Simulated scan of single mutants.
Amino acid sequence: MLSEAAAQKTGMSKHEVAAIGDAMFALIGQALMEGEGVKLTAFGSLQVRPRAERLGRNPRTGTAHRISPRHTVIFTPSMQLRDQLDLAVTRAASKPARRRDWEVEAAVQPR
């Protein structure tokens, strides 16, 4: 859980960290509901954007239906987060893949 990891890293109690996190998310939600953008330094930004009415299709039956216009929250990662993610993915790709126990068993058994 995120609050447990933050509590261990900061030395604060889980209750204190959870209270701070809840307050932050409430403030972020309030700002978004007021139509404001939220910038989280070195992480990214959240913006409210309108979505136009469009025609959707039920994948099971194929019948078309109208999807009403609405507002949605869009997350845009910061350049710093993108760079760190690219570095982590590159490092993970250069390491040999670890097989899980069930994958090893499946690979060893004859077909």
Results as ranks from 00 to 15, higher is better:
residue 1 M to T: 14
residue 5 A to S: 06
residue 9 K to W: 04
residue 11 G to L: 05
residue 11 G to N: 02
residue 13 S to E: 01
residue 14 K to W: 01
residue 19 A to M: 11
residue 21 G to K: 05
residue 22 D to T: 08
residue 22 D to E: 14
residue 24 M to S: 06
residue 25 F to D: 02
residue 25 F to P: 00
residue 28 I to Q: 01
residue 29 G to N: 04
residue 31 A to L: 00
residue 34 E to D: 10
residue 38 V to I: 02
residue 40 L to N: 01
residue 42 A to S: 15
residue 44 G to S: 05
residue 48 V to Y: 13
residue 49 R to Y: 08
residue 49 R to E: 03
residue 50 P to T: 10
residue 51 R to S: 06
residue 52 A to M: 07
residue 52 A to W: 04
residue 52 A to F: 04
residue 53 E to S: 10
residue 57 R to H: 11
residue 58 N to Q: 03
residue 61 T to F: 03
residue 64 A to S: 12
residue 69 P to S: 05
residue 74 I to D: 08
residue 74 I to K: 11
residue 75 F to T: 01
residue 76 T to K: 08
residue 76 T to S: 14
residue 76 T to M: 00
residue 78 S to T: 14
residue 79 M to N: 12
residue 79 M to H: 09
residue 80 Q to N: 12
residue 81 L to A: 14
residue 82 R to W: 01
residue 82 R to C: 10
residue 82 R to Q: 15
residue 84 Q to L: 10
residue 85 L to I: 09
residue 86 D to P: 00
residue 89 V to C: 04
residue 90 T to M: 09
residue 93 A to C: 13
residue 93 A to D: 06
residue 94 S to E: 15
residue 95 K to L: 10
residue 97 A to M: 10
residue 97 A to F: 05
residue 98 R to N: 08
residue 98 R to F: 06
residue 101 D to G: 08
residue 101 D to F: 08
residue 105 E to W: 03
residue 107 A to H: 07
residue 109 Q to V: 11
residue 111 R to T: 11
